[in-house]
């Protein structure tokens, strides 16, 4: 049985690893071209990110929201939808966490749970227009999610600026009360990572062990077959976007309830911005599988934290984003290779 599992995952695992190596090689070439020492830069990246306990904690803290936004995208893909709404839903999650965490007074534990759940709920609420437009008006989810991302950006900024600003420090919202903070494990890593991982396994269970998850995956694999069996497509649409919203809302919450030292969001949304889009990368590298996404997010967390250390050598930290991009392109290569092969061989040998 174990060997069968290894057999099943060997190929995607190998492909992902190869893509990562290719990404690093291309990154090294770029650095060499600009006159930097790639080996020194990469060792700075690795020593900085995983060379110390603090570094490891920081990398994991970076990974925490990415796995959740990655999950949002992955659930969409599994159900046959291209859900890029995690970005805006994470903003809503973050402000949802502030709404309960900063304003209301509750005992520890209950307060934490209430703030977390409300954040998830806010993220999920933000998915409803997407589902409604898709199910009843046929609006493509890419269009509606991107529009809602922008609406969320300005809406959340408005809420921070006019309703939840910290008196005396108007550039940010009120930090959450100590009763609504996850326990710090080290550096800026908190116990919220366990909640995130638990949610990943919950999603895994839902997708592969329940009839609801089966309906999502069947619709994603062949919508015509799902129709033939009599699966209610409206329900699938709402369920998949709602689940994605829950995950994205939780991702926003991790940045507020589980991220020292600020425990809040800034008016610029600097600490939640781009989580949704980086999550898509995590989902692609992790092959849309919850467990794969956990590892992919940790990898991306290491990259993004380690990048700061490359800066000491003068290398632009944005280069790690370029490496990221190369990895994702390289991941699509196996398919590209198949297409090219068909084109060349097909003409002669068919």
């Amino acid at each position: 049985m174990a060997s069968a599992v290894i057999q099943k995952f060997k190929r995607p695992l190998l492909e992902s690893l190869l893509a990562i190596i290719l990404g690093f090689i291309v990154g090294a070439i770029v650095m060499a071209m600009f006159g930097y020492d790639p080996i020194a830069a990469y060792s700075a990246l690795l020593i900085g990110s995983i060379g110390s306990l603090d570094g490891i904690c920081e990398s994991l803290a970076n990974a925490t929201p990415l796995m959740l936004t990655g999950l949002t995208f992955a659930i969409g893909m599994k159900s046959g939808y291209f859900n890029v709404g995690a970005e805006g839903q994470a903003y809503l999650g973050a402000i949802g966490a502030i709404m309960i965490g900063s304003v209301i007074h509750l005992p520890y534990g209950i307060h934490l749970a209430a703030a977390t759940l409300f954040a998830m709920f806010m993220g999920a609420i933000w998915s409803l227009p997407v589902s409604a437009l898709k199910a009843w008006r046929g609006v493509h989810e890419v269009v509606s999610t991107i529009m809602l991302n922008w609406i969320a950006l300005f809406f959340v900024r408005y809420l921070i600026e006019y309703h939840y600003y910290e008196p005396g420090r108007a550039e940010r919202a009120m930090p959450v009360l100590p009763t609504a903070r996850y326990q710090v494990l080290g550096a800026s890593l908190t116990t919220v990572i366990f909640v995130a991982v638990a949610f990943m396994f919950f999603a895994y269970f839902l997708l592969w062990r329940t009839t609801l998850g089966y309906e999502l995956r069947l619709t994603g694999s062949n919508p015509e077959a799902a129709r033939y069996i009599g699966i209610n497509s409206t329900r699938v649409i709402f369920l998949n976007f709602f689940l994605g919203g829950l995950a994205a809302g939780l991702a926003g919450a991790t940045q507020v309830l589980g991220r020292p030292p600020s425990w809040t969001i800034y008016k610029t949304l600097g600490n939640v911005i781009n989580l949704g889009f980086d999550g898509i990368g995590a989902a692609l590298i992790g092959r849309n599988h919850p467990v794969g996404i956990i590892f992919a997010s940790i990898f991306l967390g290491i990259l993004s934290y380690g990048a700061k250390f490359m800066m000491y050598l003068g290398v632009d930290p944005d280069l790690t984003r370029a490496i990221n991009g190369v990895i994702i392109i390289a991941l699509s290569l196996p398919e590209l290779y198949r297409i090219i092969r068909r084109f060349i061989v097909g003409r002669e040998a068919e």
């Binding site: 995956r217 069947l218 694999s221 062949n222 015509e224 077959a225 799902a226 129709r227 033939y228 069996i229 009599g230 699966i231 209610n232």
Partner: peptide, 27 residues
């Protein structure tokens, strides 16, 4: 009525387009 409701009444269906709708090939 939907295929699900018909199935509950004991209706079974062998479709014409087996790869297209009869199975989900990637599963």
């Amino acid at each position: 009525k939907s295929p699900r409701e018909l199935a509950k009444l004991g209706v079974r269906h062998i479709p014409e387009d087996r790869r297209g709708i009869g199975v989900a090939e990637p599963m």
